[in-house]
Simulated assay, not measured.
Amino acid sequence: MDFRIRQLQCFLTLAELLNYGKTARVLYMSQPTITFQIQSLEEAFGAKLFERDRKQVRLTAAGESMRIYAQTIMDTISDAREHLKSLAAPRKIRITCGPSGMLDLLPAVLRTLVRSNAGFEVEVADLTTEEQMEQMADRRIDAMIMMPSLPIAGVRFVPLCSLPLRILMSRRNPLASRSFLSIRELHGANVIASRPEDCRYQGPFLSSLFAPFDVVPRLVHVPQSCSVQFAYVGADAGVMIAPYSAGFADLTDVVSIPFLETLPEMELGYSVLAENKNEALPMFHQILSHCASKLQGATPAAKGTRSERSRLIEFPHLRDAV
């Protein structure tokens, strides 16, 4: 038996259009060529596939069966072509990271990728939270390293570790020499927060964090950028509430001070679209989990009971936004 892909293409197109002239035009072939291809296919399988008279062309019973098999063959060839193409091209994953992981988790992940030769490329997009949400929904981002889960339909949040909160402030601040600070001492203080147009959630989060202590901070809204926000802190324009790992940054003008109170810890993880089939994601998850466990291990034990330490910050304003 000898048949070619071109014959199957001619057969399937003619089976759909039931017109030799239209089939020839669609496939950019002459009508005699279409006739020859169909006859060759019929000879190869020993069955008549079409009935043709002056008025119409129609499939025979054998032709109806052949149509199913031919479509399966063409689909298999298409799948094989795409799979082999993906093997030849380097796998790529596009990620983005919120400020909370920019200084510690993301650098650790990139270092591990370089050393491990993981077999895929990573592109890091520098985006605000609002841009992250938009691009994740549009499938332009594969994964977001972030703190809380964001209200995006079809997104799955994968928790990695939990970190205690600290106060970052300028060394010039009168409170900078303290070993611990009470959250109540921040009443009326300037607290750095991302602009609402960059992240609509940080302002409400800070307010909900301070509310149980009857503390009302003055929010200073600045661009959602680590370098910009640390510059404001270093200039003593305000303090910043950040996870413990932010204190790893080697910043000359900024100190990191733990809270006196036992506050809920902040959860760090990443989000992906549940339907994302990027083949690099499982390996990326392994690397993220490894780096996050090392980050968790470098975090000193918080004060308070185990049950108190295990509490995680909840974001009711996120649930309300869904």
Rank of each mutant, 00 (worst) to 15 (best):
C97Y: 02
M29Y: 09
F3R: 12
S78I: 01
F248P: 00
L49I: 05
M136Q: 13
M147I: 13
L12C: 14
S227C: 01
E64V: 12
A301P: 01
R166Q: 14
L181R: 13
L150P: 05
L27C: 06
G154D: 11
I313S: 11
Y69A: 13
P196W: 03
V114I: 11
Q31S: 09
L110T: 04
S100I: 11
M29L: 15
R111V: 03
C199Q: 02
M283T: 12
G21D: 11
S100C: 09
S256P: 06
Q202A: 13
I241A: 10
V122P: 00
A15S: 15
V191W: 02
A176L: 12
E185Q: 14
Q224M: 15
I145A: 03
R54Q: 10
D198T: 04
G46K: 07
P90H: 03
T35W: 11
A321C: 12
L41E: 07
C291G: 02
I167M: 10
V322M: 15
E197L: 05
T299W: 07
L113D: 00
G203M: 07
E265S: 08
S116I: 01
A302K: 09
V233M: 10
V155R: 12
E123N: 01
L186T: 09
E308H: 10
L103S: 07
P212E: 14
P148A: 11
L312Y: 01
L206S: 10
Y28F: 04
R171L: 05
Q229D: 12
F284V: 01
M136C: 06
P217D: 06
A280R: 00
H317V: 04
D126E: 08
M169W: 05
I192C: 08
M147P: 05
